[in-house]
Amino acid sequence: MKRRLIFGLLLIGACAESFLPPSAVVDLRQIGALVEIDGKPGRANPDPGDMVQVSNLVIDRGFPPTVPPEPPPLSPPPLQWRLVACIPAPSVLETPICQNVIPCEGCEEVPPDDPLAFPIARFQIPSAEELDAAEATSVVLQGAICAEGEPAELDAIIRLVRGDIDVLEPCKDPDDEGRFISVEIPIEDQPENPNLNPAIADVTLNGNPWPPPFDQEVPRDQSNTDCADLVEDRSVLPRADGSISIIQLEATSESFQQYLVDDVFITEEIQVSWLADGGAFESSFSFISDPARSAIIQWAPPNFPNDMGRVVRLNFVIRDGRGGIDRVERGLCVIP
């Protein structure tokens, strides 16, 4: 019944206060999960029996803010996670419910040995017989990730549904930042034409190659401020004066696979997500279709008065809607 209100709400417009869009990163976020299959590079969806490694693509605020003269910490607080791999129970509910647990390496790190580590899990996809018996067409990696502090127990969601608890908190300490995550990994159903991960060919800024030093990624232990000295050519840097930057993302031609649906070949459409921990994108989602292969987005830098510059982390994620994903991170030093 309430879905009938969709149009009404759209027509009515904003009848309430506006929120920050999904593109604005202000706390711990997972933005995707990259599945890599042993011996099958580039594949997005595994076959029964394959060994897979799932890298949870997590971004956070990095270093917590500090007020001078307090010095910033040398490293960000370590992420902690508690995950489970499983065969889901048959359901049309939005949240998968775990049925049969799969042994998993790296699923629980409370805390991890490497303080800068991201959640990466390895496990083996069950056999075709096990999947058929459970009527499963996918496997699930599910659980909680916390920016600091211990994650909640794995049965938290089930306990909420049962009524044992009334609030769902991803971390044992409600004040800790955290997320419940669910990664559904579809089992390949067209082995003769397997789904491949799309790939980002290039990201440019205002028509030019991305300026260094953060033209590949931003180290997790990079300070959020005092970046101006790292930049050789400041003329290409965005300025905190309200001027708009144009970012163009291009996908490879191979990213637009064709696949069969009901005996009809359909070309993949790539969904692009833009995220930044500073400034504002004009939208949070965009879509790329063949043959355009690129999307353009406007980004307004943050208003930052510090002459030493501020590092803004930008993440770009593309998805093919069937489990394939690619992600690149770039950074910009915004100067007044």
Binding site: G32, S182, Q271
Partner: peptide, 19 residues
């Protein structure tokens, strides 16, 4: 809505309803 679960396949959040 008392919580949410991030769904990596769709890049969206699944709401978890209270009573």
């Amino acid at each position: 809505v008392v919580g949410s679960v991030y769904d990596a396949l769709s890049d969206l959040y699944i709401p978890i309803d209270g009573r």
